[in-house]
Design a protein around this nucleic acid. Structure first.
Length: 363
DNA sequence: AAAAGTTCCAACCGCCATCTC
DNA sequence: GGAGATGGCGGTTGGAACTTT
């Protein structure tokens, strides 16, 4: 049943690699580059399965592998990413330069999994869902964050397309949340998916939304993350390729501990994972455990101020009539799919979008 | 000192998505 | 469009290293 093995197993070495084998593999890849794994053993003279060669290279021999213990910052980041992504180790590893998915997986299975499980048990038993600044008896570092990550890409020029700003603030204190859809979303969490998805870069266009036409200069499915590489400036009339990466989106969430959320630091090529909504549904992200990832502080004023506020951050969104109209537009149009909202000089927070109504994400 | 138990992690395995013909 | 090839992923395993008894 299923596929045949990737290679004939007869006569192949298994188990630990010898230094000679390592040298052969390194030398071969130095000359020929990566890829063609199936042919590599034969061409290189290795008695190994191609997959084994690939794994050895990726997990151990690659020159950019970072050795040594996982730092507390890395650990914290892993926890946060795992809350967001589940067991998608390769994606998590993509946020940790020099770390491999295998290493992170092992580290999780041997360390963090137990810690988190213990933490969750204790949380379930007696601890109210206050997620910031907690301590626990297992010495598990809490996901406290000193600086809220804030992507302020913004819009700089009507003629130069820039993505809408999404502000994701780290580490939520749900005890301050009003009883609102957002809090329900946050506390009723689950992990997005357990299986990695693969995406390819595609040009995606959607029908012009009726009401948003004035404001939507483009029709790009997604969260509107477009690399701000400073090289390519899109014309406002030009269909935009959805070239924002999942990595970039993650950087919004995870920038607090690593600084990787610096949006000027376009790392999209690092992960090489472009995403589109067909692959990574926004609703998936919303359903994920942002409650543990995002930092929202709500004012008690429920009037017009739906924006998250922070003591040391200016309001992320000035909720004006324009915004209310815009949000209404979004609700009544297919702007769920077209969130590349061109609004010069304005910033919209992700949470504000959330607050504007979960009904967006219904079909 | 040695046996037993535990932890850790490199490597293997099967499955799946994408690519290529 | 279909089938096989390929690459990549996450789950699992096996054994070395370490700790405890």
């Amino acid at each position: 049943m299923g596929r045949s093995p990737c290679c004939a197993k007869e006569g192949l070495n298994k188990g630990a690699w010898t230094s000679q084998e390592d040298d052969i593999l390194i030398e071969y890849i130095r000359i020929h580059g990566e890829g063609k794994w199936r042919n590599l053993p034969k061409n290189a003279g290795l008695k190994r399965c191609g997959k084994s060669c690939r794994l050895r290279w990726l997990n151990y021999l690659r020159p950019d592998i970072k050795r040594g213990n996982i730092s507390p910052d890395e650990e914290e980041l892993i926890v946060r990413l795992h809350k967001l992504l589940g067991n998608r180790w390769s994606l998590i590893a993509g946020r940790l330069p020099g770390r491999t998915d295998n290493e992170i997986k092992n580290y999780w299975n041997t360390n963090l999994g137990k810690k988190v499980q213990n933490q969750q048990i204790s949380t379930t038993v007696s601890i109210p869902p206050k997620l910031s600044g907690h301590s626990d008896e297992n010495n598990f570092p809490p996901p406290t964050v000193s600086t809220p990550p804030m992507l302020s890409a913004g819009y700089t020029d009507e003629n130069n397309f820039n993505p809408p700003t999404i502000n994701l603030m780290s580490s939520i204190d749900t005890s301050t949340l009003p009883s609102s859809p957002i809090s329900k979303t946050c506390t009723n969490s689950h992990v997005i998916r357990t299986k990695a998805f693969r995406c390819s870069s595609k040009l995606i266009q959607t029908p012009q939304p009726n009401k948003c036409k004035e404001n939507l200069e483009t029709n790009v499915i997604g969260v509107g993350l477009v690399p701000m590489d400073g090289h390519e400036h899109h014309s406002i009339n030009k269909p935009k390729e959805l070239s924002g990466t999942f990595d970039e989106l993650l950087s919004l969430v995870t920038s607090t501990t690593t600084g990787s959320g610096d949006h000027n630091n376009n790392q999209s090529s690092d992960l090489g994972m472009n995403f589109n909504v067909g692959d990574i549904c926004l609703s998936d992200l919303l359903n994920s455990d942002f409650s543990n990832v995002c930092d929202f502080n709500y004012s008690d004023d429920n009037s017009n101020d739906l924006s998250p506020v922070s003591a040391d951050q200016p309001p992320l969104m000035q909720y004006s009539d324009d915004h209310r109209d815009m949000l209404q537009d979004w609700k009544t149009s297919n702007c769920v799919q077209t969130m590349n909202y061109v609004a010069p000089n304005r910033q919209y927070s992700f949470s504000s979008l959330l607050n504007s109504g979960g009904e967006w994400f219904e079909e």
